[in-house]
Design a protein around this nucleic acid. Structure first.
Lengths: 180, 180
DNA sequence: CGCAACATGTAAGCGGTTACATGATTAC
DNA sequence: GTAATCATGTAACCGCTTACATGTTGCG
């Protein structure tokens, strides 16, 4: 599943512009599927060429025309087919964990800084989740609630693990008893 | 941090061939930083050109020469610099969660299948962790243990969340009481 | 007999990131 | 005045994936 398909999925919720979708990518989808304008706009124009979305151009003063996209019946069919894939992946690409693998090559302060930064990032996600719940959760589909809960559960687990185990990385290793 | 830098890091553990590194990418690093031969071999030859690794070519009968790479002092310096980045990212790209966001467009059976597949994948990681612990953990750096523990903690949290909340996605929604 | 492990690489292509380009309006 | 929001897009680039290409040894 690529950015195109996710855009199509977002449009099942109602017509939207590329700009609108970007906000979705930043909020609801932000923690597990990132995308920038450089992916979104080309995706929409490609979907349009394929006939999976229709586009209504709304003139505006001072701003570029607002292009509001709507999913078509063919688009909906295509999306449903895409969702039939029963083995979607879940990939992690973590420079954080890679760095921690080489912690023994780093200075204690640097390790602490990396761990603190990670905790801050998690806290940001937490805050985002909190706001989403407060603001707009009432009209969500169950799926979206499930995904939000998933994000929260993982955030909690990461936070807990890091705070409980960071000492392993930063404490001076106990003098090893001489081998043999 | 890219594949090149991770390869360089792996070589601090001792000389190795591309083939050897691939095994590392499949075991220890597999759950958070994937890489195939198509990334590894070019990475090594690039590192070699930059003088960050030296290469000893060992002739073999019937097989291509085994190329054993060793990190150089310049390589080590470069790696240490790279590890100074105190804000390494941790990215998730999840087709699984994206799919679940659109669960309301899917049939119950398909949703179940996706969830079951995810649980199976997690179980595979779990099994891999178990084997790593049994086999080779004694000579690991603290960092590697930390990262393995991290993987286990996240796997546990995901498993728990999915099993406890999957019913939200697959049960028939309770008939909504008429609005207002 | 067939498969897994050993062992290296190239080349095309894809998907996504980043930087660039433009510019009005509104809130602080 | 300056930053954020609204609003769209292109183009170069980068890094990684996938498929291809080749061939031996050893195990069950």
């Amino acid at each position: 599943m690529d950015v195109k398909t996710v855009c199509l999925g977002m449009l099942t919720d109602g017509p939207a512009s590329g700009y609108d979708l970007k906000k979705n990518f930043e909020s609801t989808f932000g923690h597990f599927f990132a995308a920038g304008y450089g992916s979104i706009y080309p995706a929409l124009s490609s979907l349009s060429k394929q006939g999976f979305v229709s586009c209504e151009q709304i003139a505006q003063e001072g701003k570029p025309d607002r292009k509001v996209y709507q999913i078509t019946e063919e688009g909906r069919q295509f999306l449903l087919k895409a969702l039939e894939n029963t083995s979607p992946c879940h990939k992690i690409r973590s420079e954080f964990l890679a760095t921690m693998c080489f912690a023994h090559l780093m200075q204690g302060e640097a390790i602490e800084a990396v761990l603190d930064y990670r905790l801050e990032e998690i806290a940001k996600y937490r805050e985002m989740f909190r706001q989403l719940e407060a603001e707009s959760m009432s009209d969500w589909e169950e799926g979206e609630k499930f995904v939000l809960g998933f994000g929260k559960a993982i955030a909690t687990a990461m936070e807990k693990y890091i705070t409980e185990n960071r000492h392993l990385l930063t404490e001076e290793p106990v003098a090893k008893t001489a081998a043999v």
